[in-house]
């Protein structure tokens, strides 16, 4: 048996030099900024690819977004050798919060691979522009799938239909925990940025390069694999998606006021070697205390 694998990806602004543009007021100029497959989505695609190479499977990649989001699907396909691409695009989906987004995604996942149930859904850790990290778990919940977040490694037992996953649970200001958890399929995995697939036998390597070549060829003709679905094709009630389906709204955006002045700084000019020397003396005194 092989696995039915889904990957959720997102088109995101490319914040790197040469791609990003800012408005005069310092906010992101979305129109001028190039977009690409989000970094976390790329890692999710990689995890799906590993699963396909190691266990065999049918990969469906999906994204909710404007028509141009198909380039994210194409990029994901070139990473994971997807067999099917879904784009959920409808003006009614615009400005959805996480709950309304999850509503669209879960319905899309149910339509993948001719309606077969998925065994594993992969998503990125969080998006770099919105970065709530909520959409994945909410989609999982709506599907009724077990959600496993921060997964840094995993293996599948095909016979028992179990997954064994290693999770990195970071608790700021406290411990970090590495947890091994086992769960029956189907599962929804939000892959951690630290995840790295390891192909450590010659046969895995040869299979992976064969699939990768196929992936490049497929991505060059990605439109053949692409299905664009709107709310009608997804059979979604407009009242539950987009703005009407969103419990939350953005009320206002404001500048964070300056913190109160807590100390009075001694000002040293950068060329003032004596001043710097004194500072160093101070550093050494403090450290040796």
């Amino acid at each position: 048996m092989t696995l039915n694998i889904a990957v959720l990806v997102k088109l995101e602004p490319d914040f790197s030099e040469g791609s990003v543009s800012y408005n005069p007021d310092g906010t992101l100029n979305r129109a001028e900024t190039k977009s690409k497959l989000g970094a976390h989505s790329a890692i999710a695609s990689l995890a799906a690819f590993y699963t396909k190479v190691k266990y065999g499977g049918y990969i469906s990649v999906s994204s909710m977004g404007p028509p141009m989001a198909e380039i994210a699907l194409q990029e994901a396909q070139s990473i994971c050798d997807a067999d099917e691409l879904h784009l959920y695009s409808d003006r009614l989906f615009a400005s959805a919060d996480t709950l309304a987004t999850a509503e669209v995604l879960q319905q899309g996942i149910r339509k993948m691979n001719n309606g077969k149930e998925m065994d594993i859904v992969f998503s990125g850790h969080r998006a770099s522009d919105g970065e709530t990290g909520q959409t994945g778990p909410q989609t999982a919940w709506k599907l009724g799938f077990t959600f496993l977040g921060n997964v840094i490694d995993f293996s599948v037992d095909l016979n028992k239909r179990f997954i064994l996953a290693k999770r990195l649970v970071a608790l700021p200001g406290f411990y970090d925990i590495v947890e091994e958890i086992q769960a029956p399929l189907p599962v929804f995995i939000a892959i951690d940025p630290l995840y790295k697939p390891i192909f450590d036998t010659i046969s895995l390597r040869l299979t992976s390069s064969r699939y990768l070549k196929e992936a490049k060829e497929r991505a060059a003709n990605y439109k053949t694999y692409l299905k664009v679905l709107d709310h009608k094709k997804l059979e979604l009630d407009p009242r539950f998606v987009g703005l009407p389906g969103s419990p939350t709204i953005v009320h206002k955006v404001e500048k964070i006021p300056k913190a109160r002045t807590t100390r009075t700084a001694e000002l040293i000019e950068g060329y003032d070697r004596e001043g710097i020397k004194n500072t160093i003396t101070k550093i050494l005194q403090l450290v040796q205390k």
Partner: peptide, 13 residues
Amino acid sequence: AQNAAERLGGGII
């Protein structure tokens, strides 16, 4: 080379 080797179960790693 990869295309040729692949057909025989070989390839580049």
